[in-house]
Structure formats: structure tokens, C-alpha cells
Nucleic acid binder design. Structure first.
Length: 324
DNA sequence: CGTCTTTGACCAGCGC
DNA sequence: GCGCTGGTCAAAGACG
């Protein structure tokens, strides 16, 4: 009996009214499916676009990483070369100094703190300024307080005068072996008993640079207010450590040595100059090489325009020892 | 006339 | 000892 009922129900479902209902439901489902698909498709396309963009960003990041790795490698190589060069030139200077005036070499060694001349001129192979204050200093070198000052002047100005606030009398001028410019000898004329002497010569490498070597210590106050007497003196633009000649930037100066306010001579310790300048030089070189690289500029522009700069920045920040 | 600069001579140290 | 080089002296000239 129950079986008969089931058969009747099954037959009745395939009868016309129910069949129509089923067809209608199928159509409804199909249309819903189409509607959902049509709505999903743009999202899928967007996701695909994003994935594609992400992939291209990854590729670009990879390329930038490789570039930075190369740059980092070059940076390290340059750093090593620079260190090697500095070491070599220091040794060369000592050797040059030992070629002549043997006694002075010893003196220089013994008074390296005060007289860093021979070494501080770093890189000067001329040997002229290395022997800048050799002979006379020998006798009373232990008393001598030697300092060196670089001053930038007009190249056309042939006068070897450094206005440092003191009054000087020129007592000699000599041509030196390795420098086409003569060397002038000055003695402090403010006080007759003042033992301070000054030697001034143009830098062999940078003719606009005047190198003044001071020997001794003034036993009188600064005469910077005595104007007019030094009619031949003039204000000069002192060189900063970075604007000096690349190799001869090092200069030492006794802190007690007065410097005129108008000159604003800047000076610093050799080691500071070396490390800071070296770093700055390398940074400049890297920045220069980067900005010269058309593909790098293009990549950066692309990254900026597409808003992916943060990604690139992350890559850069993760790159070791790249000063940016 | 006093002061400063110029310049040739002289001296001393150093390497060969 | 000689020659080279750097440092100093001093006479002469320039300048204000």
C-alpha cells in the first residue's frame, strides 16, 4: 500500500504542473548564477590585476635589490681603495720627509700632536710643504708650537698675505723646489720679543689656497684691532674642510692660535677630516652615480607615480651600509 | 723720514 | 767634499 502511494507521488511530480514549476526553478537558478558570475567577474579581474601589479612590483623590487647590492659592493670596494690610498699616501709622506732633513723627521715624529704638518698634508707628493718648517724648527722644536692654516684667496692675487689678526713683517721670500709659487717668511712685528714666525705659500695643487705655517707662540695679546697698519692685508675667505683640495684638506691648528673673526678660518683635526670627508665623498659619489643612472631614475619615477615608493624605500632601508 | 717689501747673498743641514 | 735645498740676513728700493 505504501509503495503504491510513493509511486503515485512520483508520477504526480512528473505531471505537467510540477514539471513547469521545476523548469521555472531551473531557469531561475541559471539566471541567478549568471547574475552572480557577472558580478564576480569584475572583482576577479581586479584581483588578477592586483596580482599582476604585485608581481611586477616584486620583479622591480628584485631588480632594485640587485642594483643596490651592486652599489653596496662598489661602495665597499671604493671604501677599501680609499683606505688603502690614504694609508699609502701617509707612508709616502713619511718617506718623502725622510729623504731630506733627517733630523726633522725625528722631530716631526716626536711632535706629531703639535706638528702634524708632514703627515697632515696627506697626499701631497710634492714634498714642498712637507719640509715647510723643517730647518729652523730643529733647534727649538720642543718649544715650537706649530700649526697650519689653509686660506682661500683669489688666484690672481699674488700677495702671500694671510690676515690673522697679528702684525707681521716679511723678512724673506724664496722659491722652493717643488712649488712654482714662492714661499714668504714673516716674523711677528707687533712685539719685538715675540718669537712667532709664519711661512706662507700657495698650495701646489690648488693655487687659490694659501697655506700658512705658524711657529711658536705669541707672548702678547692679539693685535686684530690694529687696523690700517696691515694695509696690505685683506679679508679672505677661509676654506672649509670640504672645499679644500681633496687630498690636502687636513690641517692642524693650535687651539691657542688666534684666528681673526673676519677670516673665520675653519680648521679641524686630520682624523675628523679624513673620516668625515671620506664618508661625504663616498655619499656624493654614490648619489651622483645613482642620479646618473637613467634606469634607476626611471624606476624611481615609476615607483613614485604608482605609489609604490614605500616598497622601494623598504628595500633600500633593508640594504646594509648604504648611506642615503 | 720711518716703515715695509724685495731680493740677492750667506749659512747650515743633508744626501751622495 | 760637493751640490742641493731651506731658512735667514741685510742692503736697497718703494711707499705713505
Amino acid at each position: 500500500m505504501e509503495y503504491n502511494n510513493l509511486i503515485d507521488t512520483s508520477l504526480s511530480l512528473t505531471s505537467t504542473p510540477y514539471k513547469d514549476l521545476l523548469d521555472h526553478m531551473e531557469q531561475e537558478m541559471q539566471s541567478n548564477k549568471d547574475g552572480i558570475e557577472s558580478k564576480i567577474r569584475p572583482k576577479t579581474e581586479q584581483v588578477n590585476d592586483l596580482v599582476e601589479e604585485l608581481n611586477s612590483a616584486n620583479v622591480e623590487n628584485q631588480r632594485l635589490t640587485e642594483m643596490l647590492a651592486v652599489m653596496s659592493q662598489n661602495y665597499n670596494v671604493l671604501t677599501n681603495q680609499m683606505k688603502e690610498y690614504v694609508t699609502k699616501t701617509d707612508k709616502t709622506d713619511i718617506n718623502i720627509g725622510s729623504r731630506k732633513r733627517k733630523s726633522y723627521q725625528n722631530i716631526t715624529t716626536n711632535h706629531l700632536n703639535n706638528c702634524d704638518i708632514n703627515n697632515s698634508i696627506g697626499g701631497s707628493s710634492s714634498g714642498d710643504e712637507e719640509n715647510f718648517s723643517c730647518k729652523k724648527a730643529k733647534g727649538d722644536f720642543s718649544k715650537a708650537n706649530i700649526s697650519r692654516v689653509c686660506v682661500r684667496t683669489q688666484t690672481s692675487d699674488t700677495r702671500l698675505i694671510v690676515n690673522d689678526g697679528y702684525q707681521w713683517r716679511k723678512y724673506g721670500q724664496k722659491m722652493t723646489r717643488d712649488n712654482p709659487c714662492p714661499r714668504a717668511y714673516f716674523i711677528c712685528s707687533f712685539a719685538p720679543s715675540c718669537p712667532v714666525k709664519k711661512k706662507v705659500q700657495r698650495s701646489n695643487e690648488d693655487q687659490s689656497m694659501l697655506v700658512a705655517i705658524y711657529e711658536g707662540e705669541h707672548n702678547h695679546p692679539q693685535s686684530s684691532n690694529v687696523e690700517g697698519k696691515q694695509s696690505s692685508s685683506r679679508s679672505v675667505t677661509a676654506c672649509s674642510t670640504s672645499s679644500c683640495s681633496s687630498k690636502k684638506t687636513a690641517m692642524t691648528l693650535d687651539p691657542t692660535e688666534p684666528i681673526s673673526q673676519e677670516n673665520e678660518v675653519k680648521y679641524s683635526n686630520k682624523k675628523e677630516v679624513n673620516s668625515h670627508e671620506l664618508q661625504q665623498f663616498l655619499v656624493d659619489q654614490m648619489a651622483l652615480s645613482l642620479t646618473r643612472d637613467a634606469s634607476f631614475r626611471e624606476s624611481i619615477a615609476k615607483a613614485i607615480s604608482s605609489g609604490r615608493l614605500l616598497i622601494s624605500k623598504l628595500v633600500i632601508n633593508n640594504t646594509p651600509s648604504i648611506p642615503l
